[in-house]
Amino acid sequence: MKNLSRRNFLRLSTNSLLALASALGIGGLIRYLSYQFDPAPSSEFDIGPASDYPLNSRTVIPHIPAIIVHDKKGLHALSLKCTHLGCTVEQRNFGFECPCHSSRYDMDGAVLKGPAAANLRQLRVTESEDGNLHVFTT
């Protein structure tokens, strides 16, 4: 930066200021567009009394989406969201299949065939004081 003439100094500072203003503008733009007004979707679902899910039942709750399995091991919930790109998987005689890219899972949600790499998620289920089951997606 030797021999910086007055002209070049002025030019450099003006251009720096314009660059600074652009950076400020881009930062403001990102903040403007990142605002989220709508509330985040609920992550807790009340699915009614536990007696609705007797032993050896498999019940699909479409709006979560999840399947509530009650077997010898107890009551647990399996997410029906494909771990590949989030489509809802469908029930098959071998377990589940994703209609979007044909990933397959067995009855317990373990991957049988890609492209999905991870098993279907186990969801937390709790029973509240009033006897209703609550499923948590987070």
Binding site: M1, A19, L20, S22, I30, R31
Partner: peptide, 29 residues
Amino acid sequence: KHKRYFSRDYLLAISILTFLLIAGLLAPL
């Protein structure tokens, strides 16, 4: 002159400043 105008120091200074500024603006996010 062009060389000086686009000197590395200058570009470096501008990019650091830009980065800091955007980072600062995004911090409240």
